[in-house]
Amino acid sequence: MFDKTLLLQQLHEHLQDDLQLAERALQASHEAATHEQSKAENKYDTRGLEAAYLANGQQQRCLEIRQALQQLHNLQLRPVDQQGRVQLTSLVALQDAQEQCQWLWLLPMAAGTRLQQNALRVQVISPQAPLGQALLGLQEGDEVSLQREGTPRYWQVVAVC
């Protein structure tokens, strides 16, 4: 099965890599915004303004990653409760009607991140996401459904760790 401590380390490394990329992009966009070639040649020349907007977006991305790293540092992994209900930090296996299984990790940060341990893949989801909200409090054997583009999708909870 999964070792949550190793997954946390992997997630930390992933976020650190993302931060390094974002910081390099921030530096490049800042240099572009302040470069003399970005100076407007006429009132319709918006290169400098566009570069400044990009730099601002990169700065925001760096801030978000730093906040996620801080949340990760403060995160307390919760043991499975006595009833085996899905809660924050739970790893959940869902099986669809075609018996395909997917693992999800309910965390307050880094939603959308995909991790792998041995041959098993896990995707981080947020408790604010519709599926994350629907999973909270469920137990092994419960069913969950969501409407997606007008079509209902169904899964069964097959494991909670």
Rank of each mutant, 00 (worst) to 15 (best):
L120S: 14
L77C: 04
L8G: 01
V80H: 07
C101F: 05
Q82H: 12
R153Q: 12
V92M: 06
E50G: 11
I125Y: 01
A97M: 14
F2M: 09
R85W: 03
E140T: 00
L88F: 00
V92E: 01
V124N: 08
A159C: 11
N42A: 15
Q156N: 04
G132E: 06
L77T: 04
D17M: 10
Q128P: 05
C62G: 05
Q156F: 03
Q117H: 10
Q76P: 01
A40T: 03
M1K: 13
Q139P: 01
Y53V: 08
L75R: 10
A111K: 14
E143M: 13
A134Y: 05
G150M: 03
G132P: 05
R121W: 12
A33F: 10
V86I: 03
A110E: 01
L77G: 02
L75G: 11
Q100Y: 08
T89M: 10
T46L: 12
N74I: 00
Q87S: 04
L72M: 12
L115C: 08
G112M: 07
T46S: 15
I125G: 02
G137K: 11
T46C: 10
A52E: 14
L19T: 05
L6W: 09
A134H: 03
R85V: 01
Q156M: 07
K43T: 11
W103T: 02
E36D: 15
E50H: 11
G57Y: 00
P127G: 09
G112Y: 02
L7I: 05
G48D: 13
V157L: 09
A119E: 15
L131M: 07
L107E: 14
C161W: 08
Q71A: 02
H73W: 03
E23C: 07
M109P: 01
Q83I: 07
N56G: 05
Q60H: 12
D17Y: 08
M109V: 11
V157W: 01
R78Q: 15
E36A: 14
C161G: 14
E13R: 09
Q123V: 11
K39T: 15
S38C: 04
R47C: 07
S29F: 00
H35G: 09
V160L: 08
L136T: 02
A159W: 08
H73S: 15
Q37T: 04
E140Q: 00
E41G: 15
L77A: 04
A119C: 14
A52G: 07
E23S: 07
Q87F: 00
Q16R: 14
E143D: 09
L7H: 04
V160K: 03
Y44N: 15
V144H: 02
F2W: 11
T113S: 12
A119I: 13
T151A: 12
L88H: 00
A159Q: 09
Q95F: 13
S126K: 13
L135Y: 14
A110C: 10
Q102F: 13
L104C: 08
A40C: 02
D142Y: 04
R24I: 06
R114D: 06
Q37C: 09
G84E: 01
L6R: 12
D81T: 06
G132V: 00
V144I: 06
M109A: 08
D81P: 06
P108T: 10
